[in-house]
Design a binder for these strands. Structure first.
Lengths: 346, 346
DNA sequence: CACCTCCGTGTAAACGTTATGTCGCCGGAT
DNA sequence: ATCCGGCGACATAACGTTTACACGGAGGTG
């Protein structure tokens, strides 16, 4: 099939193989490969066909060593198997790709140790930029490692003071909106299950939650607020606990995609009828919420757009834009569906 | 805070900075960094503290150029935002990480062009190995590029003859099982919506489907078989078409996670009652199927285990195991739930 | 007491690329 | 006919590592 690859010894063919095959010097091959300087059309053609012949691909390591650029961006997220995070990669790629950068996705599995390791990997590999969603804002080893980074960094929805650009998602307004709505429907005891207050989303959601209650002049029962982890198990456990407590809520907000799953499962197991016996609000999973019976009201945000925005910010920095750190706030939307109603006996 | 980083000029500190700070030669620093040869304990300590002082991280590009190893594995998948694929990354990482390799995830967004580009990126960056799920088995540019790869490759659930190790998922047996079950319940017209026969999963599922019908002596109505794309839209469209046709099926199998979503949505819109009016079988999304009312019967497979197995195969090759290509077959499971029943008037 | 051995360290070459400086040659202008 | 200007190609020096080789000194042995 393919012409027996005329690689030098073993391994990939180098610029030298191409030069030999084309009968030119390596400098000329480099210029053709880089497309930088002027090369006579005839020579260029000879070089190009030689490259095709030997199946040449420039050695990125050598190139990187010489130029100090890798055309590579790292994207570190807490959990690659959660679409909320991985969708960001799709958005970022759509912006960075056309600009000639390759996006490498890394998943720390919510482990701060892994996070540090990957951050070092990014630094060792001289990646040109970094987009990162931290698993824990309070891990000092991680933020220290971030500060060591000598390349542009874009932070996603986290409050860490490293002088980086940040793309924030609104959580407060959306939470206030839905809680106010529930209050207007007559709910007085509303349960909230969300991420730990150690990260911004958890903190902000709790803030919006408390704010809406305060605005309505209602007391806050801390027992109704569960903010510790992000997992289906946590969502299930806490929801079960809330619903089987002495004075259970008439509405539950499961603010987080994994928590949403788990909470939903707990509601099923307890055979609570939505929305007759319980009003239910999910988050960050439009597809799921649409397909469940009845359709579930959700707080949603466009994570692909978050990725695009992050890509744009990064690209600006890579092109040398020297501005003070920029903060971008992206709205969340509240999608009202059939899962909420007035409480049965208010 | 941190001691003003004594990096040489600008940029990251190099081995030379460390050598100067420790008062030794660069060779010695390299030996300490690499942990290879014997170094006097006293010297080692001095070098280590010098490395910490300047915040040294070895330059991966230089290292790669010298050693022809990058300790880096690429994982190319069709869609990073689909957990079916990204879960594989989690499994692979759990095996490769402890062995000192970093896994970089790449998403082609089902574009053959992107696929080729990423394959070239992997080759340019001299990654030590590759795990890949192809978006289309029939794209010759992709398979040609794969053949060019001079490092171990593990293929996931695809039939492409490049002499690579492969981790297969069973689709035939699982499909036969569920179809036979539906037939036993009295179903005679069963609809199937699945991926294109251009990729193994689609092909095998159709094969299992036809096989089960044949085994039961039932005729195959090709109108009931939809195998072209993988997307929620496709799932919705085809399901709608099947259910609103002249002679609609009494059961539908939505074999594919995105198709599952879409099909489910179509069923909701048409207000078909499951399982009274329609028996429904989903695939590859355990969480969703559990939470929908009623719980949905699904064909499921452990994608994390697929990743682990792929990681193991790759690791063997990286350690120099020279065997003929190995094929591993992982079973799928059929999880029976409340979404299937005898057809209403058989 | 001299020699050999071995351990620890230094030196230097190579990896594949880009970029800088240099040179040869062709064509146009004087 | 001579000279000059450029264009295009070549040679070569880095970039930061690893590693083969050389070397010096300490300790043990004949």
């Amino acid at each position: 099939m393919s012409p027996d690859a005329p690689a030098s010894a073993r391994g990939q063919p180098t610029i030298r193989d191409v030069a030999a095959a084309a009968g030119v010097s390596i400098g000329t091959v480099s210029r053709v490969a880089g497309g930088s300087a002027r090369v006579a059309e005839q020579t260029r053609a000879r070089v190009l066909s030689a490259m095709a012949l030997v199946g040449y691909q420039p050695n990125a390591a050598a190139r990187a060593m010489r130029t100090n650029k890798t055309k590579t961006i790292g994207f570190l997220m807490p959990d690659i198997s959660n679409p909320v995070f991985s969708r960001v990669a799709v958005g970022a790629q759509s912006v960075l790709g056309p600009a000639g950068y390759t996006l490498f996705a890394l998943s720390s599995n919510r482990s701060p140790v892994q996070e540090v390791e990957y951050l070092q990997a990014v630094r060792q590999r001289q990646m040109d930029g970094l987009i990162v969603t931290l698993a824990d804002e309070t891990a000092s080893a991680t933020t220290e490692e971030l500060r060591r980074m000598r390349v542009p960094v874009v932070l996603l929805d986290r409050d860490v003071d490293i002088g980086a650009d940040v793309v924030f998602s609104d959580h407060v307004i959306a939470m206030e909106t839905i809680v106010s709505h529930l209050i207007a429907l007559g709910h007085r005891r509303i349960g909230l299950v969300t991420a730990s207050e150690k990260i911004r989303p958890g903190r902000e959601r709790v803030r919006g939650f408390r704010g809406a209650l305060a605005a309505a002049g209602l007391p806050v029962d801390d027992w109704l607020i569960r903010a510790a982890r992000q997992s289906a198990e946590y969502g299930a456990t806490e929801t079960h606990d809330l619903l089987t407590g002495r004075d259970p809520p008439t509405a539950i907000i499961a603010a987080g995609s994994d928590i949403f799953y788990g909470a939903m499962k707990a509601v099923r197991l307890l055979r609570r009828d939505i929305p007759r016996e319980l009003s239910f609000v999910g988050a960050d999973d439009l597809l799921l919420s649409e397909v469940i019976g009845p359709p579930i009201t959700v707080i949603d945000r466009d994570m692909v757009e978050v990725g695009r925005e992050a890509g744009r910010l990064l690209l600006d920095r890579l092109n040398g834009v020297a501005l003070p750190p920029r903060h971008i706030m992206l709205a969340s939307s509240v999608v009202l569906r059939d899962s909420i109603a007035a409480p049965s006996h208010a």
